[in-house]
Design a protein around this nucleic acid. Structure first.
Lengths: 247, 247
DNA sequence: CCAAATAAAATTGTTGACAATCCTGTTTTT
DNA sequence: AAAAACAGGATTGTCAACAATTTTATTTGG
């Protein structure tokens, strides 16, 4: 019961009540959205956790109505499951859902890299190289969480460069959901799960050379390897139990 | 002002006031959603039309709160642009947005056909053939609207058969938006815009033969032809004006 | 003791009144 | 006369009380 509350970072404004002075209107909503989203992606709110409106609203010092809107937004992003009259729970991606997600990423990011190869210029290549450099630095310092974030940023920026807003929007949703399934199904034996920087470098090389086919192939192999680091065999890990009984 | 109201089909319950007896709770919300959606897709509510909450709520005999939820859902489906404090307008897909949409369909439906080729069986092939048959009948009877709907159903069912829920969800959004851009940019000189049944047949053939590469290629050519029937050159048609001045 | 029925509590859903913001036409100022 | 300032109405946004539903606890009957 109190787990929901205690596992979230405390909001210093909580005691002031709901009617505190605020900067701009939607500002507050966005902040609550991002704090809950981050808690879900960090597994501080593990999959299946019931998200009750009153405790959450009190935690953040906002009204129930505002929190309700936030929950709907999170449901839209597929980070929470919202069912009529029975509240919202943190989403528990199933194994087949996770596989579908990676298959979708292969299709979409394959297309993105193919398009990017035609539209990209020297300026953009430099930007990508800089991002890869920063990513490598993070991993060298064992800052795994930062590295993973930078790695996701690489994919996101690549989509932006391709310039297809529809594909970029879809990919954005998939990139957001990816950490959730990685934490849920990470193979404990595997080394630190994350993107391989060398692959990113190879993609940049292929893009610079204008070799679309190679870029697509590397990207898809890259994603297959990432999926391969997960334990997505049929139900045999402990996490599966929570997925099965979460409803 | 009253255009919003008069261009929608009248709701017989409107006069009874907001608190009429209803079947199930969410039922009413879904009905309003679908009625407005259909009006947008038919261009009875043309792109750029302001959707005011009070008149719409009265038209359907629902509360403003319910209507507000519906508008948010429509905004999520990208059929409506919702901006804070300045209401909701029917979406006006730009030319580049429309091109992006078709490029996304090529990527996603290419992947779907590829996956379907491996998972599909004789049973499913029969279902597809039956759908194509019905589609041809509709076109032969010059029932263009029905034919277009059946054509979209073909793409939707194919996605379902592939079994990737993530890709199917994305495609569903794109299929819903497609009629909106077709009506907005239909080349008046072209013959009735819609899917070519022969292409659908050829896709079924390739799937039956298990030739994934052929199926993917036909699907992508099919979508390119559909896009080619539209007038997506830079601003020269009258509809562009509304797109430019809609904000 | 278990199961079904029932009562109480907790939780989600809805609404109408109120507040904040934006839009439009008018007046005032330069 | 053009631009800025203002006023009024129209429109969207918010909230707290109320209603409906689900969940939990208790009782009752087999």
């Amino acid at each position: 019961m109190t787990a929901t509350r205690s596992s979230l970072p405390p909001n210093t404004d909580a005691a002031d009540g709901p009617a505190r002075k605020r900067g701009r209107l939607g500002q507050q909503e966005d902040e609550v959205f991002e704090r809950i989203q981050q808690a879900i992606l960090d597994h501080r709110l593990p999959p299946g956790t019931k998200l009750k409106e009153v405790p959450l609203a009190e935690t953040f010092g906002v009204t129930r109505g505002l929190l309700r809107k936030v929950l709907t937004r999170l449901a839209h992003a597929r980070l929470v499951d919202q069912r009529p009259n029975r509240g919202a729970k943190v989403a528990s991606p199933s194994i087949s859902e996770s596989r579908d997600l990676f298959a979708a990423r292969r299709a979409i990011e394959g297309a993105i890299v193919d398009i990017a190869c035609r539209r990209i210029g020297a300026r953009q290549i430099r930007t990508l190289r800089k991002m890869i450099e920063r990513e490598q630095q993070a991993y060298r310092k064992d800052e795994v969480r930062a590295g993973l974030k930078l790695s996701i940023d690489f994919h996101r920026v690549l989509a932006e460069m391709a310039g297809n807003t529809v594909l970029a929007g879809f990919l954005d949703e998939l990139l957001t959901r990816t950490p959730l399934v990685i934490l849920a199904y990470k193979d404990t034996r595997a080394t630190a799960t994350g993107c391989d920087c060398e692959d990113h470098g190879a993609i940049a090389d292929a893009l610079e050379a204008g070799d679309a086919d190679a870029a697509v192939q590397i990207m898809q192999k890259h994603l297959e390897e990432l999926e391969g680091q997960l334990n997505l065999r049929e139900e045999d890990s402990t996490t599966d139990l929570s997925a099965i009984f979460s409803r």
